[in-house]
Amino acid sequence: MERGGGPAGVSVIALDYIRYGYIMGDMNKPTAPLPLTPAVFHILLALFGKERHGYDIMQQVKADSGDAVKMGPGTLYGSLDRMIEAGLVAQGDTQDPRRIYYRLTALGRSTLRAETERLSRVALVARRQLGSA
């Protein structure tokens, strides 16, 4: 995930994070730039293995996060638009006149795996630090 060093590189990364929630850069890489925002991570997690519509995604995110992440429609569809543009998510095949279903793409799945690995490593370091304190 090299994005160039120096102040210019840092400012580009910072701008990406602020503007796109860190998911818009380097589209040709096997995963989107990490770390992901909590909203993006939870949406990817909710869509893993199953197509879901918007309300279903919100409920799944709430359940997966133990009520810690409560997402409203504005945040959800704003994130979904950016994730579709970044190639992480696509519209699903389920036909429903009232709902649009969403599914993960291959890039979305690999990004979710990479972010999960990253979080595991961070958690391991944190546990080690806390254990030694």
């Binding site: 519509h53 918007g54 309300y55 429609p73 569809y77 704003g78 649009i100």
Partner: peptide
């Protein structure tokens, strides 16, 4: 944005 998601957002709000 509203054009793309209005119907779904209203449905989600109702839910």
């Amino acid at each position: 944005f509203v054009q793309r998601h209005r119907a779904e957002m209203l449905q989600n709000f109702a839910d």
